[in-house]
Simulated scan of single mutants.
Amino acid sequence: MNVKAWFLVHKWTSLICTLFLLMLCLTGLPLIFHEEIDHLFGDEVEAPAMPAGTADASLDTLVSAALRHRPGDVIRFMFWDDHHPHQAFVTTAGSLDAPAEENHSLVMDTRTAAILDEPEPDRGFMYVMFKLHVDLFAGLPGMLFLGFMGLLFVVAIVSGVVLYAPFMRKLDFGSVRRQRSARLKWLDLHNLLGVVTLVWALVVGLTGSINTLSPVVVGLWQQDQLASMTAAYAEVPIPEQLGSLQRAVDTADAAVENRHMSFIAWPGSQFSSQHHYGIFYRGDQPLTSRLLQPVLVDAQTNARLEPQPLPWYAQALLLSQPLHFGDYGGLPLKIIWALLDLATIVVLGSGLYLWLGRRSTTARRIAELQSGGLSEEPSP
């Protein structure tokens, strides 16, 4: 491709995605610190202090207590969080096929099976930020649309790098011509910050686009690996009465090493078959702690299916999630992510400002790039 073609690619991909990327950067900033914000405003509960070594109650006891508290509901998921010791989070609903909006949450003490909290559905500031960032309050179409904007952002970055070399031919790297016009200073700053944040922006753009495919990835896993593993149950009637969850977990524990339980999906829920408890484990190493290993156990007979690692596309999704929000390295990395996010906001905002205030024609800018000259106008 020649300079003119790269210029047009950079121009239109940038213009199409800029406003949406600005929105994603602005909404993503508080989401980076969502745990710290929740803690600051007291939106978390803590399990009461008990003597060290107090044993956890049986999982069957937790199930019974949750169903007593929500009579008429069914349990869909139970999960644990390393940041909340001695707590189990239980999701119930009126039926297994009820929409996610009808889910009800319980926070339980794993030692006593006491209900610690029954949080109402979140409708506050962080919920609005999350929904805008994930799907624009438009569900799957909104997610896929934002994923497409992320891909345009990646193309805009690549094309911008190609244009940067001829533009900077007669300048030292990092030069900001402060003695010239305000527009030229903004152009130099736009280009400099764009190059500095290049790798981070590519990582966040690509991982963000991958994350928008999560419903597609789950559906593919259901029709692919999950269907293959449970093919022998195709003609088996759906169980009306479920067996012991604790025995199912004990069976699953024997099939894994150096992993700890992350969550359990009930039969008929999104992450299991109609006949099995889906018991998911995380590893104990930095990398394996981001990956999941499912073990399927028959909810009636307690028979375990041979565990299989998740397919590559599911693992790619799991690895992309912590990279996107920078939450795999604690608070210091979150701060770095936030600073890079702010720098990207400046890049996007300055690019939009420079394009809206342009004074020369596209033909003149392309001619100057081809000749190696230095324009006072931005490449969009």
Rank of each mutant, 00 (worst) to 15 (best):
F33K: 06
L287G: 10
R282H: 15
G326C: 01
P51S: 13
R76N: 07
G329T: 08
A201G: 13
M108W: 06
V218Q: 01
A93H: 02
E118W: 09
V158Q: 07
L333S: 05
V176Y: 08
F167E: 00
L354E: 05
E102C: 01
L187F: 08
R123G: 15
A234M: 10
A165E: 11
F89Q: 02
I345P: 06
G326I: 00
G326H: 00
L317Y: 11
H10L: 02
H86V: 03
I335C: 03
S209Q: 02
L31A: 00
L152I: 09
G42P: 06
G326Y: 02
T361P: 04
G219S: 10
I264Q: 02
S14W: 02
L19C: 14
T18A: 15
R282N: 14
V217L: 05
V346R: 00
A316C: 12
D284F: 07
R180N: 14
H133R: 07
E306S: 14
L59H: 08
W186L: 12
P239H: 06
S175H: 15
P30W: 08
S269N: 10
Q241H: 14
A201C: 13
L146K: 05
L318D: 05
L62H: 02
P141T: 08
T344G: 10
M168K: 14
A234V: 12
A113R: 00
L22H: 07
I366G: 07
R359E: 13
S175G: 10
W355G: 03
T344E: 09
W80A: 08
E120M: 12
M50D: 09
L59I: 03
C25S: 11
E36H: 06
S14P: 04
L59F: 11
V218C: 00
R68C: 07
I210V: 12
A57Q: 05
S262M: 10
F77E: 02
D38R: 09
M168C: 09
I16H: 06
D135Y: 04
Q179K: 15
A234L: 11
S209E: 00
R359N: 12
S273N: 01
S320N: 01
L213K: 02
V154I: 15
T61L: 10
N211P: 06
P48W: 10
D341Y: 06
E376Q: 14
G326N: 04
T92F: 00
S175V: 15
P322E: 03
A165G: 12
I345Y: 08
D298L: 08
C17A: 15
R76G: 06
P121F: 10
S58R: 05
F148V: 14
D43I: 01
D60A: 07
H104D: 11
A138F: 11
T288Q: 13
T61C: 05
R358M: 09
P51D: 11
W312Q: 10
Q293S: 14
P215D: 03
L59C: 05
M129K: 05
R76D: 01
A254D: 11
R364K: 13
D122A: 14
A113G: 07
R259E: 11
Q285A: 15
D172A: 13
P71I: 09
G283F: 00
